[in-house]
Amino acid sequence: METLLAGLAGVVALSTPVVLATLGETLTERAGVINLSLNGMILLSAMASFAVAVHTNSLLLGFLTGALVGLLVALLVAVPSLHLGLSQVAVGFVLTLLTRDLSYFLGSPYMGKQGPRLSPWPLPGLQNIPILGPVFFRQDVMVYLSYLLIVGMWFWLYRTRAGLVLRSIGERPEAAYVRGAYVRRLQYIYTLVGGAIAGLAGPTYSLSVKAGWKGTISGLDGVGWIALALTIFGGWRPLRGAVGAYLFGLLQWLSLVLQPYLTDIPSQVLQVAPFPIMILLLLFVNIGNTEWMQRTLAGLPPDARRWVLRVLKALQVQPPAALGRSFERE
């Protein structure tokens, strides 16, 4: 029981950077902007924040650096896509490759160095709740911050006026503009804030759950793509996105724990398991939108159709209608 709880606490800790990245991207995409640079950006922010923390011996400055890197890369996405009307996918994709190379290039002097590391801070009182306490409340500050962000973002999106405006600029920017919203300014703000939140994923790795910088073998390459996929899986909703991230961490942990029992499956296969899982998750949430599925459904007997539809509806997601489209005032 003790080991199980410790394992689950580890899942929560390891999922935290993915949760942060997914939340940041969710906020950005709700405003209609795709920030595809996440994967390389997280590598760069992990490297840069580790370097700053090593030099200054300050964890706070390290984490601030991570957020700043996320914000700056988001700015490099926002200006060409919002001001110049360039393809958000193209700009983001170039930046994801560029920032990855940049992190390996600039990070080589810091390979394998010792640096400061965030220590856990069990919450008084809460940590003694049976089962929940050891799993959720004996973590470090970043994990608690991620809880606050999950709830805060849900509240912002669905319970405030500003959130209503945010959702409307992702769906129908023209209508929001006519009703007086500063569409482009808001898109800038949410892209930058979303980038900064996602940028915190880097130091959460390099200063906490996977402390240090190990270049190409840091094991962080791919995390950003997972977060981008989880943003879709979460249906652009913070709660569902976060649940997706934890579920994902759980599946990864299970594959590690089960490895000794599955001797027939080579260990390499299980290491790559996240990526087929990612494709499958996207398949589940998107297949209901395809033409052949709708045609097949129309041909089913009514009872079966109602049942299948209910399952599909629960899974199915729809992106913000104006996602990736640049907004012109004219």
Binding site: G222, L228, I279, G288, T290
Partner: peptide, 23 residues
């Protein structure tokens, strides 16, 4: 047939291919 954007399927399959070679 699955509605999965090619960026994600392609990326996932990249990792799978590399793993296949390692295996």
């Amino acid at each position: 047939y699955g509605g999965v954007h090619e960026i994600f399927s392609g990326l996932g399959l990249d990792f799978v291919a590399t793993t296949l070679v390692l295996y």
